[in-house]
């Protein structure tokens, strides 16, 4: 009896002494959130790594800057080249600007393996940024943004895009950081000096167990032509987080159209193109009885184009995160459908 009592006491002591899995609340001010050097607002800490994905997410033309921070001594597990495992404590930052910084987003992996999402909204003078409400801000007046308004995403909006993928980190992956940059990728700029890429990640021990066979030659989007490479790269980056392989947590969307590519899969291109041409779509444009995402030679009948051009909330693709269509991307995709897929 006594031994049972002792065991209970020990258990209680262990429970009380165990480190709390609850993360500290985020600070109200960006200046205190760990992105910048203490006392030097706007100066990024040198421990953080800047990076730029070669295929960018369309954000209505916003200029973006990105950083990642890994806990000291830790590394990303790259054994699955299509779904890197980030260590707890990983933090990624992304700043959105229209002539001035508007918002800075944070994704953080917590000790229990879950992810949290937050947004800091800058003041007009650029002297501070405050934590946004979890419900977001529907229409922040920003004269330099399209239509003079800017939508700060809610936490659910963040999760809607990020948690549809196998890994919630989007834009920091083997294909996106490949040194084999796509010269036709839309709005792509050469990486700035000091930005991380795939070989540097491996060389600096920040990415472990990544398959050497996918380092040389460097991974690239599977495609039959340079134009198609840019098109499929764009779709991979902008649509692949929902239109991708199922994730083990059941959070992914059960859709038939696959647009994400796995760099280790030699059939990746065939799978994407086949699903675009053959997968049924529930969206019924007027006058089309058997619509498909892509109809070779006929962009005007391709649901992909119709939905990318629309910004009506019932029709638009992507369904959130953008208020105006990406006309440059539409022109590229229409050209691919009209001339390269034409039988």
């Amino acid at each position: 009896m006594n031994s049972i009592r002792v065991r209970w006491v020990l258990l209680c002591v262990l429970i009380v002494a165990a480190p709390s899995a609850v993360a500290d609340p985020l600070p109200d001010e960006l200046r205190d959130a760990g992105l910048y050097i203490d006392g030097a607002f706007g100066v990024v800490r040198p421990e953080l790594h800047s990076f730029s994905p070669q295929y960018q997410l369309w954000s209505d033309g916003a200029i973006k800057r990105r950083w990642i921070e890994l806990p000291p001594g830790s590394a990303i597990d790259g054994a699955d080249p299509a779904a890197w495992e980030f260590p707890p404590g990983t933090r990624l930052w992304k700043e959105f600007s229209f002539d001035r910084p508007i918002e800075t987003r944070l994704i953080e992996r917590l000790a229990d393996g879950s992810w949290r999402f937050a947004v800091y909204v800058w003041d007009e003078q650029g002297g501070s940024a405050r934590l946004a409400p979890v419900t977001g801000i529907r229409a922040l007046p920003v004269p330099t943004a399209p239509n003079g308004r800017y939508e700060i995403p809610s936490e659910y909006d963040c999760r809607a895009c990020h948690e549809g993928a196998r890994v919630p980190v989007l834009g920091f992956s083997a294909l996106q950081l490949s040194p084999d940059r796509d010269p036709l990728a839309l709005r792509a700029a050469p990486p700035s000096p000091g930005e991380l890429n795939l070989p540097e990640l491996v060389a600096r021990g920040l990415l472990r167990d990544y398959p050497p066979a996918l380092l040389v030659p460097a991974p690239r989007i599977g495609a039959a032509s340079p134009i198609e490479r840019a098109v499929l790269g764009y779709l991979h980056a902008n649509c692949g987080h929902c239109h991708g392989a199922p994730d083990p947590n059941g959070a992914s969307v059960p859709v038939a159209t696959l647009l994400a590519q796995d760099p280790s899969d030699p059939e990746a291109r065939a799978k994407v193109v086949s699903s675009l041409l053959r997968a049924p779509t529930r969206f019924r444009p007027p006058g089309l009885d058997d619509p498909r995402a892509v109809v070779p030679g006929r962009p005007e009948e391709s649901v992909l184009v119709l939905r990318m051009r629309s910004r009506h909330p019932l029709m638009q693709m992507p369904p959130l995160g953008t208020a105006i269509p990406d006309l440059e991307a539409l022109a590229l995709i229409e050209r691919w459908i009209k001339y390269e897929l034409n039988p």
Partner: peptide, 19 residues
């Protein structure tokens, strides 16, 4: 999945991610 259903009701979006 259960997660799809919960995400839909919580977010007010189809499957938690769509329209």
């Amino acid at each position: 999945t259960l997660r799809n259903f919960v995400d839909t009701i919580r977010s007010g979006r189809h499957l938690g991610r769509g329209r």
